[in-house]
Nucleic acid binder design. Structure first.
Lengths: 150, 150
DNA sequence: TATTGTTATACTCTATAACTATA
DNA sequence: TATAGTTATAGAGTATAACAATA
């Protein structure tokens, strides 16, 4: 059955896509003095503004302890500040520094640029078809993950 | 410009695909008593047969020290054996145990089954178009990674 | 001399559990 | 009583450097 082999070959490509994408992104981060996890913290702050560590932990799906360590590292390297929360004295408020803001701006710009590089030259018809297939595959995978968790 | 926003939205999906795929695969591995890195070792052995640690390190793009630790763990959990190399007394030969063979067989089957689940219901036309788009995106990303390394 | 793999050391990400301070 | 965050402890992956045994 050729279809079966085609399906596996296509899946190989999907896996490779995930790997290559990961490698490409990690590369740029190293140059900025960041790791993937620390960047995720910055990304949440970029989108949601100053946040408590609890919010960061929930947004990232990670333990509170883990966030403590990530924020420690980001404070030490000047990307964020950790300050007392103005109204809840148990909580800390994590805020991007100016350096952090500049960095997330660069990340956002690079992200948009990569999206453009990947798709700008693609004929509209193929682009739409690709996105449709992507949605389909994503939906299937999301369902599997949800089932595994539920 | 709507195209620009569409490109970013599509790229968002690609990123999500990588994340969800990662999560789905990691889930099953935990149940088998494996991690991603250890599974990668098994996968190389499955495809290339008994191998020295040097070969494993090169195939995985990882340090020799790292492979020592991964193989230690896989030996301790009964997936592989580490034996003296028959002709080169410096080297160790890593081989799948019967348990390791059964495990890689299961992984291969699950892999094929997931590929089927993702694509079997997709109309041939859309499938082809999706694969074409995928190849395009992959080619672009491979080039970027190669450029970053070179 | 070059290569294989190990020991030594260190950093990052991650988790759970116990604890403090506050709500 | 419940929540926010830290300290304590542990395990996994990763790297470089120094070293042993062998090629």
């Amino acid at each position: 059955m050729t279809a079966r082999r085609d399906h596996e070959a296509a899946f190989d490509r999907v896996i490779e896509l995930a790997l290559v994408l990961n490698e490409d992104m990690s590369h740029g981060l190293g140059a900025l003095g960041l790791t993937r996890s620390r960047t995720e913290v910055l990304w949440v702050l970029h989108h949601r503004g100053p946040s408590t560590q609890r919010i960061l932990a929930d947004a990232m799906g990670v333990s509170a302890r883990n966030v403590t360590g990530l924020v420690d590292a980001l404070v030490a390297t000047g990307f964020v500040t950790r300050e007392p929360h103005p109204t809840d004295r148990r909580a800390a408020l994590v805020t991007l520094t100016e350096h952090g803001e500049r960095t997330t701006a660069v990340l956002a710009r690079d992200y948009a640029e990569l999206a453009r590089a990947l798709f700008a030259d693609m004929p509209a018809e193929r682009f739409e078809c690709f996105v449709a297939g992507l949605e389909r595959v994503l939906a299937e995978l999301r369902e599997r993950v949800a089932a595994a968790r539920g």
